[in-house]
Design a protein around this nucleic acid. Structure first.
Lengths: 245, 245
DNA sequence: CGCGGAGTTGATGAGCATCAACCCAAGTGG
DNA sequence: CCACTTGGGTTGATGCTCATCAACTCCGCG
């Protein structure tokens, strides 16, 4: 498989956006799912970043245990972050969509593996430089802090899904999450494009690919969705009511 | 049930400690599970905090959906953070031990319910004041950021446990987590004091209280632990090997 | 002493993992 | 251009894990 291509970050950093809802306070007109970074902030951040493009699905941005020298911002594409057991079983702990940060580490080593699911573009920031930079730019650091809190909330929510939902409900909740990403969900037709395989979904929802297929069948049987192709699903409004929380 | 008692934060803030491993970089002598805050930092933080004591188990620090005006730091005791479904099922998404921060919110409202499990002492910080304070004190904000990342890692790990482990393994992993807290684990005798009920453990591990009891039985049958009383368990060294990751 | 909640044990059935077989679409190479 | 390959997707059969309901014990407490 061919490796990624690297180049210096572009002049304009309009694509440097961090996806996150506000942590505690609500501010006027704060509905946007993206943090507001000033143009000057973006430019400064862009200065310490490199742009990398990954072409091939299946390639890895980094692997568990590697020395962690970079933090990544996904600009375009889809990335999965996973943990694996000795027996080879894999648990995907997060899908990263455009605007997401990834590259969690502990004591200088990555604590999970980041895998490319579709051709992707990322910014990568040298950790040490970034840490210094954040100390010097409290407002930007605050944005990163809010992002971390946002991800923490989302992961806790997923814990509820895993702990209390059967497979059909988990799938329904997952599809609704996906439908929040306009790159993959066409509002007018309500058709969701699924960039990942059944196996990926299963490894995310703590079940098997067969069970995912059967859950699709169940939801379809109840008129909550319609499979156009294996990777394109039309969602109905009723789907929301199926996931009671 | 009697309410909590409030008083101004004390002069000395030696108990203001934030529990977290470093996010990315490892620094010399950085083994301690607590962030290093300067004495002056602690004093400044303490100035905007109030100390609250909760006597009665079962009382709530805050409930889902309430206006979020405070962030909490647990000094002593044990607190559970949970989400509930319409049907009353409860999922505990985290136990908070001394040194943990809690009070996640979104758009100004708490996104889970914090419940007192044992008599507890907390610091509480007015959110708005704290946010201003953190912007003005980048190093302390950095500590909070690291704490958030630490919690995110821990929650992702729990997601692996929930997605890939059977009940016995989940319980074993949970007991090992608990044994990391010296307040409740006596190193010499290897006896762990469990401050929570079977129901709490079940609601954390996404199972039922009966299954927890049976899992205890299975682990005991394999010589991995010994139940002294319902709330005191002697762990063996072998327990670690049972949870292969 | 009697009450109530936690803990335990047993019986039963449902949901799902697993294994196996098969279909289908996209590539690949002759 | 078409056979062949490969991996994802689907469907069916079977057994196991665990949720659930019920009964009972144990313990602390007024």
């Amino acid at each position: 498989m061919d490796g990624p291509t690297t180049r210096a970050a572009r002049r304009t950093h309009g694509d440097l956006r961090i996806r996150a809802a506000r942590a505690w306070t609500r501010e006027h007109g704060d509905e946007a799912p993206h943090l507001q970074l000033l143009a000057s902030d973006r430019a400064e951040l862009g200065r310490i970043a490199e742009v990398i493009e990954y072409r091939t699905a299946g390639s890895r941005v980094f692997s568990y245990g590697e020395a962690a020298n970079f933090l990544y911002l996904l600009v375009d594409g889809l990335v999965a972050s996973s943990l694996s057991l000795d027996n080879g079983e894999r648990q995907i702990v997060a899908f990263y969509w455009p605007g997401d940060l990834f590259g969690l580490a502990e004591d200088g080593h990555y604590v999970n593996t980041a895998e490319i699911l579709t051709p992707s573009t990322v910014y990568r920031f040298p950790i040490r430089q970034l840490e210094r930079f954040l100390i010097d730019h409290p407002r930007i650091q605050h944005g990163f802090f809010i992002k971390a809190v946002h991800d923490l909330r989302a992961t806790q929510r997923q814990l509820l899904v895993m702990g209390r939902f059967d497979v059909s409900r988990r799938l329904a909740a997952f599809l609704l999450d996906c439908s929040g990403h306009d790159d993959y969900f066409d509002q007018p037709t309500r058709v969701l494009a699924l960039p990942m395989t059944r196996y990926d979904i299963a490894d995310y929802l703590g079940t098997s690919a067969e069970s995912i297929t059967r859950a699709f069948g169940l939801l379809e049987g109840q008129g909550l969705l319609r499979r156009r192709t294996a990777k394109a699903v039309e969602l109905t409004e009723k789907l929301k009511t199926y996931v009671e929380m």
